[in-house]
Design a binder for these strands. Structure first.
Length: 763
DNA sequence: CTGCTTACTTAGTACACGCAGA
DNA sequence: TCTGCGTGTACTAAGTAAGCAG
């Protein structure tokens, strides 16, 4: 089930250097390298090039690299972005006129609709056609019904207990709840993780202590003496029982739940109905940190109304609470987009209840994000030119900035902010350390580090020669494993630098820009031909390039291998059928072999063993089918009170299969095909073969797609990085229904794109 | 500046649900 | 009609970045 996708640090003892010692080291480096604030690049370069290339006179080397840098840079980005530079149309000026007009129309509609109840479910508010001014104020009125709290804990029946040292333990309810959190996870990877166990156990004991220990005088001190399996089994049983409910009962439960949730699902923003995203307060449980998170397994405590801050307008009614409970705080902050928040106890940060993805405010943010990325188009050349030039700056800081921007631009690395000791040790660009980058002359770099979510980033790539040299400089002694590569840099320095090129430009914009740009370029390569399915496949391939660029991974599903095997078997079987038909043709007409020798070449492709195993598989499947059919048929007959099929009926079917088996066996020896249809002709067989060929093709493509997608997650880039207008335009232009690309919720999230774009739009 | 707080965006996973194929 | 499995959605962790106080 699990893959090696997420990498834990292989050695628990190998903790990163303490922050302080890192800083000390950085300071030390500074003195040695750069006490005057600049350094002599020639000296540095000559040292490096000595180690790398041998001797080359300095000046010439400089010039040469300059040119190489340029070439390398353009080549690199072309390679990634598909084809080169397509000119991008300026946005048309008609837009403003159009929007003003529809704004007026909109206002009229609103007046009309005022006492008409709410308009259709979608509300029909097209913010993208309205003028928006100041965006620090997000709303003028905001009303909502608060949040749903998780149901209170229901104690276990008295026969379900934790066992300690083989003895049943009577736990206070609160402690039992915590024990249950762990018990529920018994089969999972978390439960096997020692850090998880330790953190859970500590918190469990603390809760136990708080409520006075066990009630039957058992002192719990050793995790390994705890046996949660009875609790686990009980949860499994409950799950099973829930599954067993009749569809009627399930429906009933669902309806009840929906009725309860209804008031929380929507809120009223500036008089319009909008959906709320996560209106449920997160239930208590054990923190499931990703990767080697030091706090994984800790108790995530229950949130009560008094922990929750509500945000609504001043006139909004305050959502009622049961007797004796009250909200932590009521706020009226219209510069933010959250409805409620609370502080979480694991890392002491905030959790927010926010609008749903399809809300107008989120839509506007999305729109702005992509427009900002599009704006980068106008600056990217200058930025690239600059960082290429500054790779040779005399100032260390400048070199680091240049290399960092290069990496962010070319390899779509994240900014990489500093992380504290009590988080998983993951890095991005600015936080890369010595050991994450391996240099192989002349200019190959191996990146190997854990990024966001502890997803491994592993790439062997060729980089610009000067980038390579600089990386070598950044790794020079006394730096050693554990030290920051970019010791003068952090995301805020980088972002401040980027703002000079374009207001609002930050490191993350490059990911959006390069993702969407790549998608545009890839889509441009797709010919407008073939079936919808074929076009879809190509769209997904384009999507995949982007996902790979962004290193979006997913774990391989537990039955992936099996399902690939199945698909392979299916293809083999189809091929066997094809060969068999070809043999049959030759049986009918030997002269065909001479007429089209190529066509018949493949008839010897299958080895006897292969063929035999295909036979075996088919026969096994047939036998199974017989049994299943028999059982099913009899169930039905029993129900209808008819005579049951007898064993001899079953035998009859099985005999038929047996006959086929014998035929196959004979075929294997004699290569004589016994076909069912007696009056077949070469033409008919040819037709069948053609059909088979098509099926094989389709299956093969699907299989390849499946394999290529098995570790790549397309969703993340589709949702966050690829300008949705690209997909909309693709659909319009290529006659692909949008439903094939955007699920219902994505269509709603990207409504602004779906409804506003014409087919000439370009990123 | 630096470090901390706050807000918002991006991310993979778990699991329910629905649909295709037997 | 049932089942298996793949997809879609809910969930929440883990990033980025802005802003502010000291």
């Amino acid at each position: 089930m699990t893959t090696e996708k997420r990498q834990y640090s292989s050695d628990d003892e190998d903790t990163p250097l303490a922050q302080t010692s890192k800083r000390r080291r950085a300071a030390q480096l500074e003195e040695e390298d750069d006490d005057t604030g600049s350094f002599d690049s020639d000296t540095v370069l000559s040292q490096v090039s000595e180690t790398l290339n041998g001797r080359t006179p300095e000046l010439e080397e400089e010039k040469k690299t300059k040119i190489e840098v340029k070439n390398e840079q353009t080549k690199k980005s072309r390679k990634r972005q598909g084809t080169g530079l397509k000119k991008v149309k300026k946005e048309s000026t008609t837009r403003k006129v159009k929007t003003t007009r529809s704004k007026i129309k909109k206002e009229e509609e609103e007046v009309d609709g005022e006492d008409e109840e709410e308009e259709e479910e979608d509300g029909g508010y097209k913010w993208w056609e309205a003028e928006k001014e100041d965006d620090s104020v997000k709303w003028t009125t905001l009303k909502h019904n608060g949040v749903i709290f998780p149901p209170p804990y229901e104690p276990l029946p008295s026969h379900v207990k934790l066992y300690y040292d083989k003895k049943p333990v009577d736990l206070p309810v609160k402690a039992e709840e915590v024990a249950g959190f762990y018990a529920a996870l018994l089969g999972s990877d978390h439960a096997k993780n020692p850090v998880f166990q330790k953190n859970f156990f500590n918190d469990f004991l603390e809760v136990l202590r708080e409520c006075g220990g066990t009630t039957n005088n058992i002192e719990i001190t050793d995790f390994n003496k705890c046996d949660f399996s009875k609790m686990f089994e009980y949860f499994e049983l409950q799950k099973e029982q829930r599954k067993q409910l009749s569809s009627q009962e399930k429906k009933q439960l669902r309806l009840e739940r929906e009725k309860l949730e209804e008031p929380y699902k929507f809120c009223e923003l500036d008089g319009r109905k909008e959906q709320v995203g996560n209106f449920r307060i997160e239930p208590p449980g054990l923190f499931r940190g990703r990767g080697a998170h030091p706090k994984t397994g800790k108790l995530k405590r229950r949130v009560y109304p008094e922990d929750v801050v509500l945000n609504l307008d001043k006139d909004a009614p305050i959502p009622p609470l049961p007797e004796g409970q009250k909200w932590g705080e009521i706020r009226h902050d219209n510069t933010v987009q959250w409805l409620a928040m609370w502080r979480e106890n694991i890392s002491n940060s905030f959790k927010y209840v926010r609008f749903a993805a399809n809300s107008s405010l989120n839509g506007q943010s999305d729109y702005k994000k992509f427009e900002k990325a599009r704006q980068l188009k106008d600056h990217i050349d200058a930025i690239r030119k600059d960082y290429t030039k500054n790779l040779k700056s005399k100032i260390m800081l400048e070199r680091q900035k240049s290399v960092a921007i290069y990496l962010i631009d070319v390899f779509a690395l994240r900014a990489g902010g500093e992380k504290s000791e009590d988080e998983a040790d993951t890095v991005g660009c600015c936080s890369l350390r010595y050991e994450h980058v391996t240099l192989n002359p002349p200019n190959t770099v191996i990146f190997d580090f854990l990024g966001k979510d502890s997803i491994r980033y592993y790439q062997e790539v060729e980089v610009d020669k000067q980038v390579f040299k600089n990386l070598a400089i950044f790794k020079r002694p006394p730096k050693q494993p554990g030290d920051q590569l970019f010791d003068r840099l952090d995301p805020s320095i980088l972002n401040k630098h980027l703002q000079h090129y374009m207001p609002g430009l930050t490191a993350k914009v490059f990911r959006t820009y390069n993702a969407s740009k790549t998608m545009q370029d890839q889509l441009d390569l797709i010919p407008n031909e073939g079936t919808v399915a074929e076009k879809l496949l190509k769209y997904n391939a384009a999507n995949r390039t982007v996902a790979i660029l962004c290193n979006h991974q997913r774990s391989v599903t537990k039955n992936h291998a099996q399902s690939v095997q199945k698909a392979n078997d299916k293809i083999k079987e189809l091929e066997w059928q094809k060969i068999r038909l070809k043999r049959a043709i030759l049986q009918l007409d030997k002269s065909q072999l001479k007429k089209r020798p190529k066509y018949f070449e493949e008839i010897d492709d299958l080895t006897k063993e292969d063929e035999a195993s295909i036979h075996k598989r088919i026969i096994e499947r047939e036998i199974e089918k017989c049994h299943k059919k028999f059982a099913r048929e009899n169930d039905k007959r029993k129900f209808e009170e008819q005579d049951l099929l007898t064993e001899s009926d079953l035998k009859e079917w099985l005999d038929k299969v047996e006959e086929t088996r014998k035929n196959y066996e004979e075929e294997l020896e004699t290569r004589e095909i016994k076909l069912k249809a007696a009056n077949t002709t070469v033409e008919k067989l040819d037709k069948q073969i053609e059909k088979l060929d098509q099926r094989i093709q389709v299956s093969a493509i699907q299989l390849r797609d499946k394999e290529e997608n098995s570790q790549v997650s397309l969703g993340t880039s589709k949702i966050n990085y690829i300008d949705p207008r690209l997909s909309v335009v693709f659909c319009k232009k290529y006659g692909v229904p949008i439903e094939k690309i955007f699920t219902k919720s994505l269509r709603e999230k990207f409504k602004w794109a779906v409804e506003s774009v014409d087919e000439n739009w370009r990123f």
